[in-house]
Design a binder for these strands. Sequence first.
DNA 1: TTTTATTTTTAGTCTTATCTAATTTTATTA
DNA 2: TAATAAAATTAGATAAGACTAAAAATAAAA
Lengths: 219, 219
Amino acid sequence: MLTASEENYLKAIFHLAGKSKRPVSTNALASALQTKPASATDMIQRLSKKGLVSYHKYKGVTPTSGGNKLALQVIRKHRLWEVFLVQKLRFNWDEVHEVAEQLEHVESEQLIEQLDKFLGYPKYDPHGDPIPGADGSMAPLPSTTLAMLQPGDKCRVICARDSSSDFLLFLDKLHISLGAAIEVLDKFEYDGSFSIRVDEALPITLSSKAAENIYVEKT
Amino acid sequence: MLTASEENYLKAIFHLAGKSKRPVSTNALASALQTKPASATDMIQRLSKKGLVSYHKYKGVTPTSGGNKLALQVIRKHRLWEVFLVQKLRFNWDEVHEVAEQLEHVESEQLIEQLDKFLGYPKYDPHGDPIPGADGSMAPLPSTTLAMLQPGDKCRVICARDSSSDFLLFLDKLHISLGAAIEVLDKFEYDGSFSIRVDEALPITLSSKAAENIYVEKT
DNA sequence: TTTTATTTTTAGTCTTATCTAATTTTATTA
DNA sequence: TAATAAAATTAGATAAGACTAAAAATAAAA
């Protein structure tokens, strides 16, 4: 098993490498983790010895397929905990990161599978980032906004495009929370506003501006 | 703040001292934590320097009032997580300890207060141990069994007296889960059995033997 | 293509938390 | 009370993970 520190480095390397898998420089890694280049070199060599990253001195580091898999599992845990914190414990979308950063290192297969089930197998975290499955697969980035839907369509709220605290507060007032089930009842061509039903409640009206800022997945 | 290891030692000292607050021997502490006496001595001295335990060489160790408070906060977190795992993630009562042992060290005031709220401010964990409040106060040990109630009484399930897997499986079959709201409808003097309603469902019958093995708190 | 600047690595130190082996203190027993 | 056993402590070592300072490699500039 990996230590929390090893997991953090692995995750950072994964993120910095991006899908292009270009090598990550020691300095970039150190600054991403708020540490010193010498510490990064140390850890890179440790991860390399474990076969989780491919490393050539002075040339940067990339995850191996094994390292990739492990990084995705950590990201999966992080994002599931974020969903839990926002949906169940009513954290704000910008308060979850630090806590999820700790929770992601708790080690228990059963815990994470049951949590996933408890949350209803969410595909996106509160920031709209896709949650890797147990097998490492990920949904595409969200692309559908509420404004794109037609009367009769049903959907689930993924995240806000503009996650300013103003907008989040506005959504909260309307009881539009992450994961909420929304039904589009009507669309008024006059001003582009919508009549929608949130979680079986009474219909409300939503401006086109607001609708364009809510990412959803059709259901 | 304390490291996970410091919290574990503090918790163990607290438990071993019991409410009589008699000094804990180095050997007892080491064996409780599955470590060596030399390691325990080390940590005792570290905790002593921080003012969390009172220590006299060769004479054992006791928590100070400050150490007591911190130990209770860790125990609070541990037990709240146990409730979460059993009630929300459907863990069995004997599977929660290891995971709670990790979760208890996650550091976030907000997390634990929101979790407490989310769980409905439970007073007991799945083993029937009282959960310390944010101020360190604790409810008395459970003493009321379902069998002691009269028709018309309402209560909430705390834990099983006999937590054999047979009995827990039996409770699961009847949909009697931890925290379930039970209403006593009738008591049959002939064999001491009860007619009860669990969580607003249809009435079921429960033998006196079973009723005596379920600890409850009246509501 | 040298020189200079930047990046990366190495070497050596520190802290936490553990260990073994040796020593010291306390407890027990003859 | 002296000898022995048990418990506790100290000393010294190790590993993870961080640091600083110095050295080496690479990149950029003259």
